[in-house]
Write a protein that binds this DNA or RNA. Sequence first.
DNA 1: GAGTGGTCTAGACCACTGT
DNA 2: CAGTGGTCTAGACCACTCC
Lengths: 262, 262
Amino acid sequence: MAVAYERIADQLRQSIRAGQLMPGDRLPAEAKLAEEFGRSVPTVRDALRVLRDEGLIEKQHGRGNFVRRPRTTTVRTNLRHQWEKNRARRSLEERARTGATERETGLDVDDLIFHAAYRETTADGDLAAAFGLPEGTPLLARFYRTRCAAESAPFSLVTSYLVRDLIAGNPALLDAANEPWPGGSQAQLSTVGIEVDRIEERVTARPPTPEEAEELELPPGTSVLVLRKTSIDTRDRIVDVSHVVLPGDRTEMLFTTPLERW
Amino acid sequence: MAVAYERIADQLRQSIRAGQLMPGDRLPAEAKLAEEFGRSVPTVRDALRVLRDEGLIEKQHGRGNFVRRPRTTTVRTNLRHQWEKNRARRSLEERARTGATERETGLDVDDLIFHAAYRETTADGDLAAAFGLPEGTPLLARFYRTRCAAESAPFSLVTSYLVRDLIAGNPALLDAANEPWPGGSQAQLSTVGIEVDRIEERVTARPPTPEEAEELELPPGTSVLVLRKTSIDTRDRIVDVSHVVLPGDRTEMLFTTPLERW
DNA sequence: GAGTGGTCTAGACCACTGT
DNA sequence: CAGTGGTCTAGACCACTCC
């Protein structure tokens, strides 16, 4: 702890936690801080980088360093799966009117911009293991981006894989032009006689790759939640494997686990 | 992209992704890299910091910079809650033999070191909101650390809050000396007639605070998973609010959601 | 144009690791 | 002891923001 930049970081962190520096406040200029602490500017910058990595401050080029405000978060709940399953069998008109994302964000269909792209591919080692199928099995990869019309960054980066042979019975499922499909994935699967029985979701966290940071417009010093979702049908087949990347500072995932009564 | 340190980072990232630099490999010395790229050492260090923040490399003082190996992860599943509930009513002997952590890690009771501390406190704004009770309500705060005997860092940092008045009927519940309680929290609550009906878990991700990084021995460039767990009893009372911090690079959370049949 | 952060240099000295 | 990364300096020039 004899290190200068850590001492500076500690003092500033203290000020922020104690509320002497409030969210949105600008910190003194780096040159100013260097003078106050009797250190060089690069040393002060080392201290500020520590705070930025902790998510406490935000650097704005040409404007200054600011105490970061807590982000407003989107909640994603696992109750959505049952809701989607119920919706999958409603009338076309009812399904078209709203989707799971609209429901969770409280936004209207018109406020959301939806983008989908499909590509045919084959299972590599990881995907083959996830599906429990041999490598090289033909798959359909689907890429989704949904964002608020008012914002430029999407909520999430979604890649969904389906087993081609399982859905080939309905050629409409192979064409991205049919997106957004009214009723979502479970409605799509229902057209080829697949009923989803349960969904397993695996969650981890890590720093974003540069590509993810770019696409989700993540400031440095944020993490991503990585969700790997597996859908299993009533015949115990793995019918969908999805990979979802969510901004950690904007997303809260809510899982409700009901327990059997004594 | 005209920036020198980004170009250096890109080239090294490329080498790692392409497999020219394998996990565990040592990178050339910083001075060596500076010479190769025709830049100063601090500029090379800027590039290496980028890669460290992405979790791609690990710096080891006096030894070198190394390509990081993927960590072996612990899986934490929501099926544990039903398992714990079932176990809560088994015989004392059966409950004492094993716990949820042992079950998930596949380790023996003797391989795990358990630490608990209790403190009486009152609800601040956040906790009061979480419990749906007035501020100042007396609470019991319980702090848990569990770690592998072979390792020095705990799996998780757990803080659990109970409403004091709900558990006061059994004074044994107020004394940390009775930990580890055979059968866990649900067994404890059952002694005062509380049956947990459902559990809600909220998950977010963020960079660790310095204190968390220290205690969990997190290398720079890792994230933590933050789990806020709420236990609701059969009379719709919130009986426990827990705050769990998990190392993002070592932990996978698995949630299974069963769906009703059509 | 004044003020701010972003990048970069060239070199110093310290602390840690392994032989 | 040699080699490595960790810290720090003093100053230069560029890029961005706002008036």
